[in-house]
Amino acid sequence: MNQLIYNAAVWLDNTEWSTRIHESYYLYNWIESTHVLTLMLSLGILFLIDLRMLGWAFADISANKLATRLNTPMLLGFVVMFATGILLVYAVPVRSAQSVWFRLKIGLLIICAINALLFHRKMTASIGSWDFEPRAPKALRVGALISLITWSVIVICGRFIAYDWYDCNYPQSDFIRGIAGCIDGQTQF
């Protein structure tokens, strides 16, 4: 599996646009800045909805209306964030594919996606009975808490990707080499 991921990353790295992005100071920085600043649209609004479900903010505003009205800008933010995130990985594919933090981030993103799906289902099924209650039912509160925590850890992982503590081109323990999927150091981008 690691070999397959590595081969795909090397193939991506050898494409013309990958080189263009990582060698262009301004393009790479513009993409990265957009990725970070879109936090305000995607994560910011998601956290507002989560805070409402937990009863920590907006407790006197209809939960259903808040979630449905803010859904569109939030999704727009996530689309931009994922698009720029994919471009950032495309620019530096080999290092990203062998990064412990990137792999952890992807794992947490999958957990967040499943959590969001379950949250949405439970919300649709139960809405109406508690819309103006200060706090959502327990199952939704748990979902909101999972969302808050996992997204915060995702931001930490994203920040840690920039550091080279566990990069494969340094001597690492077998455990780190295993979860990072080290194949051939990081001789390529």
Binding site: V36, L37, L39, M40, L41, S42, L43, G44, I45, L46, F47, L48, L70, P73, S152, V155, I156, G158, R159, F160, A162, Y163, W165
Partner: peptide, 24 residues
């Protein structure tokens, strides 16, 4: 460095929430 990075992440989360409240 790890502590600095975690605080940076906290700064980013704060930025996200501030931005979310401004947009809403």
């Amino acid at each position: 460095g790890a502590l600095f990075a975690v605080v940076q992440a906290g700064h980013l989360v704060g930025l996200g929430v501030l931005g979310g409240s401004v947009i809403a």
